[in-house]
Write a protein that binds this DNA or RNA. Structure first.
Lengths: 199, 199
DNA sequence: TGTTCACTTGACACTGTGTAAAGTTGACAC
DNA sequence: GTGTCAACTTTACACAGTGTCAAGTGAACA
């Protein structure tokens, strides 16, 4: 997601603020994290945070992009393209995304909660969803080339299905509720996708 | 969910407050709905709302239970038990729940957003998730009795799968994002479940 | 007629966001 | 050394929203 980053590199403090936000959001959840918490965690004053971000909403949106960048999501997802067969590529894509989910879960929830109030957050979330959709479309297209797709499934339907499998929010909640391990969770997603897509 | 309701019937005003909350949450999303909005919508003063509910969080939690009751979810879901075959029962269960999702979506989102801050909201959400899980388990058990389940799928795995299919939050977001109609969405869920569960 | 209940009005304490203004500190330029 | 610039600090405040409190109203009912 968001391969586009600002040309000049992020200032040290800005970056530290984003790291703090990330850490706190993962630990306490968006509703419980205040601007003052983030400032304290960073070791600066609350007002200093506003020197770098105009609002809480923009800070949270920036945090998701920051994590994407730090964790090299684009590279991770791109790696799935080197798989030999279509099915391996599908598995690799799901694994790359599935293993990334826990890292962004806290922030993703923040983004979802913000949607009612903030236009940017709404756009950021829709972008994420669409990025996953497009990634899925590419993986499914590779599968299609291998002719392993059952005839009655159009690519679009397959993409929709995969997309639903990969949507962040409820999967991670379910994972926690059901007590699945991360590995089991990824395996479950892969098996589900295979079952859905292959005859 | 929550077949248990308080013995004495809900006061008229209390019920009207809950209806207002429901309407507003569906329209604007939890983050944008204030206590004063709910009061105004109901035609009473803000303070009067606090005569019926001790806090915003408890009001929102009560709203989910109210919708469940008004919309007769328990009955709707129970109706699926009268289906003849296991597969029909599965379809009926999914349709009952799937058609209910849009009605509670706004409130469900509110509940999710509240989780970080409020213990009751957390419990209410977990209850919902578990109720769906148990409903799924029953539907899958019926399928199992029909011996239509593929051998390698344990009931537990099947339940997990179905559960993931039925989780409210991301499905409804996806439905909107992808522009699926309600009917197409339910059909998609049913087909996905069948593919996952049957060989 | 008096009491009670549901509600109203107005005031206020508290928390959190965001803004504004003036002061500090360190680095770097000359 | 002196000046200056940027990043940050402290203090203060405006504003919105939640939740509380106290006194008052008005209709129903005994």
């Amino acid at each position: 997601m968001s391969s586009a980053q600002s040309p000049k590199q992020e200032s040290d403090t800005r970056s530290r603020i984003l790291d703090s936000a990330w850490k706190l959001l993962a630990g306490k959840g968006a509703g419980a994290v205040r601007m003052s918490d983030i400032a304290k965690q960073t070791g600066i004053s609350r007002q200093a945070v506003y020197l770098h971000f105009p609002s809480r909403a923009e800070l949270l949106v920036a945090t998701t992009r920051h994590i994407d960048q730090v964790k090299n999501v684009d590279e991770r997802l791109a790696a799935s393209r080197s798989a030999r067969s279509g099915i391996e590529r599908l598995d690799a894509y799901i694994a790359a995304w599935g293993n990334y989910i826990p890292e962004i879960h806290g922030v993703a929830r923040a983004l979802i909660a913000l949607q009612d109030q903030d236009e940017d957050a709404r756009a950021a979330w829709t972008d994420r969803m669409n990025a996953v959709r497009h990634g899925c479309a590419a993986a499914v297209a590779a599968l299609s080339r291998d002719n392993q797709l059952s005839a009655e499934l159009s690519e679009r339907e397959a993409t929709d299905l995969l997309c639903s499998l990969l949507s962040v929010e409820s999967w991670e909640q379910l994972r926690q509720l059901c007590g699945w391990s991360q590995a089991r969770y990824v395996e479950l997603m892969q098996r589900t996708a295979r079952r859905a897509l292959l005859r």
